[in-house]
Amino acid sequence: MLKDVSFGQYYPVRSFVHNLDPRLKILFLIAYIVAIFLAKEFLALGICAALLVFGVAFAHIPAGKVLRSVKGVLFLVLFTAAINVLFYRGKTVYWEWGIFTVTFEGIMTSAFLVVRLFLLVICSSLLTYTTTPVALTDGLESLLTPLKWIRFPVHELALIMSIALRFIPILADETDRIMNAQKARGAELDSGGLAKRIRAVVPVLIPLLLSAFRRADELGDAMDARCYTDGKHRTKYKKLRFSWRDLIVFVLIAALVAGVSVMRVYPVFAL
């Protein structure tokens, strides 16, 4: 049940993409998002899409798995696209009815939007498929390190993220157990009106909160017992290192953003 809401959804295989530095993958995602929103023509978007296809192929992620990540947002994307088609005011009008107009420009913008959103979703799931939650946290911590200068608690934030990642599946399990126990006592958790459902949540929520507090307390003790203080004199076992693979990808990112920016200024095929 709740466990099926896969969190982090890391796909455990060995691949070129899996081995990349997590910081680089996070940067790549950001650069990629910038690129697809800068892209103004289909050629530019096509390049972005092709790059992503290579990425997925190099990551050894089955296509079905990638498409499934798109399925989750399919309705939202199509709905937005439909709104766009119907309300965009362009010059080449095909059809008109009341406030609704279908224009060539509208169709084109919608198509762009759909492709952009799909690429966005696929690229971010490529990141989570190929990077363990721990590596992701480490990468973020490392990228945010400059913020330590303004006394932003980067280390604490990273620790909180890593603990959250560790406890989410445990608490999901616990929720399952408590729900089952209350169902066995005749609680009806999935029927009745809104008021009834809200009331039905109490017997699950209270034990869950108590359990979370208890665990927090226990974890706190276990951390103290292992000499946890404020992280000032802390060392880190895992160091993130750049390798030649990372360099290649870094060059690719730079080329991508530069290329798309150039195409924005000097369009190859004007719309």
């Binding site: 126990a181 005749g186 109490v202 017997p203």
Partner: peptide, 25 residues
């Protein structure tokens, strides 16, 4: 059905209310 560590399912303010929960349901 009594699950493992069933005390983790207690939720009501009083013992009476907790025991009565299943009966009322």
């Amino acid at each position: 059905m009594v699950f493992q560590y069933p005390e983790n399912q207690l939720f009501a303010e009083t013992v009476f209310e907790d025991v009565a929960f299943g009966y009322r349901n």
